[in-house]
């Protein structure tokens, strides 16, 4: 549970607005051209005055995704352009950190644009602490989702004009793994490589997974009454015999039913993630991933063919692919 004093202190900050942060430079052609060069953006609306003059924009504009770039502090930490506030819009993160939540990961960046910016315009932004969620536990650890909203303005003599907004959400957390906490940086955008989860293995199921490693799909068979069964179990469902061996499936099958996982998108799986209830031609069914299958093409009863794929160099799984009829 989160410390009640922390919650009180955090809630007192929510809604607070922080002063202006100015751009070092007005919107300008050299920074735009260099940004386009590295990003691989070749839209002449940003760099070709003749093209831009003949476009509906009636002149050069800045790439919309550059909105944040203009007001960045630059090489020297906390060295904002003259006239900028000395308040720290991220003070809530320091506060949460002081209660033992050292890590932070950026979660959402949501830019909205009122219009395109033009060379010569001078920007500033103001920040509002929009919300701090209840304490939550995710795969990374336990902490708080913190949402800041930056409003960007262009200065005009006749009054300033709102030109865009950034909603920026971070997760400020105590890592699930304590070792990670020691090494936790102030700014992490990284997560470890995620491998496929491995199956639990027992004396009843070991033959099945070892069969997969050998490229064979094995079905358990009762040696008393010859009944096939899957998933593996110690006792025959027909005659209650404990005696069994296995037979290799042909790999020919049909789609008995299926689901498509759309959400949540969990690494390392593909999304959408189609999963089938597969009827083998030998008569037993198993659950397995479907590959090479488009949602609109899947239909109950369609023929499938077994194939094995090895993940992370160590886990071989039976998957099924639609067969052209």
């Amino acid at each position: 549970m989160a410390d009640s004093q922390l919650l009180t202190d955090v809630r007192a900050l929510v809604g607070r607005e922080y002063g202006r942060v100015y751009a070092w430079d007005e919107v300008n052609a050299p920074m735009i051209r260099q940004w386009c060069e590295i990003m691989g953006v070749d839209n002449p609306l940003y760099t070709d005055p003749a093209f831009a003059a003949n476009s509906a924009q009636d002149g050069l504009v800045a790439p919309p995704a550059m909105l944040q770039v203009w007001c960045m502090e630059g090489f020297h930490i906390n060295n904002y352009a003259p006239g900028s506030t000395t308040e720290n819009p991220y003070e809530v993160l320091k506060l949460i950190e002081s209660y033992g939540y050292p890590s932070v990961v950026a979660v959402n960046s949501e830019l909205t644009f009122e219009r395109n910016l033009r060379p010569g315009e001078k920007l500033y932004y103001t920040t509002r602490l929009d919300s701090v969620g209840d304490e939550k536990t995710t795969g990374l650890g336990t902490g708080f989702f913190v949402t800041l909203v930056m409003d960007y303005f262009v200065e005009h003599k006749s009054g300033d004009e709102a030109v865009g907004q950034l909603l920026f959400r971070v997760f400020k957390f105590r890592p699930a793994n304590n070792h990670a906490a020691e090494a936790a940086p102030a700014k992490v955008e990284a997560a470890a490589v995620v491998k496929r989860p491995k199956p639990g293995m027992s004396d009843d199921t070991r033959f099945f997974w070892e069969g997969c490693d050998a490229g064979k799909l094995l079905i358990q068979r009762c040696t008393q009454c010859q009944t096939l069964r899957h998933p593996p179990a110690p006792v025959c469902i027909e005659c209650h015999s404990f005696d069994w061996d296995s037979v290799q499936a042909s790999g020919r099958a049909s789609l008995y039913s299926f689901v498509i996982m759309h959400y949540p998108e969990v690494a390392p799986f593909d999304h959408p993630n189609p999963i089938g209830l597969i009827e083998l031609e030998e008569g037993v069914r198993l659950v397995a991933g479907l590959v090479g299958a488009k949602r609109e093409d899947l239909r109950i009863g369609q023929p499938l063919q077994l194939e094995f794929q090895t993940f992370d160099g160590e886990l071989t799984l039976p998957l099924f692919r639609p067969v052209v009829e």
């Binding site: 590295i38 960046s109 644009f113």
Partner: peptide, 26 residues
């Protein structure tokens, strides 16, 4: 953000006007 803009713009063409670019990071 810049690469997302490029990907969308390559498809939409030079005079598509962006009104929102909302991303979740993984």
């Amino acid at each position: 953000n810049g690469l997302v803009q490029r990907y969308i713009e390559d498809w939409a063409g030079p005079e598509a006007r962006f009104t929102a670019l909302k991303i979740k990071l993984g």
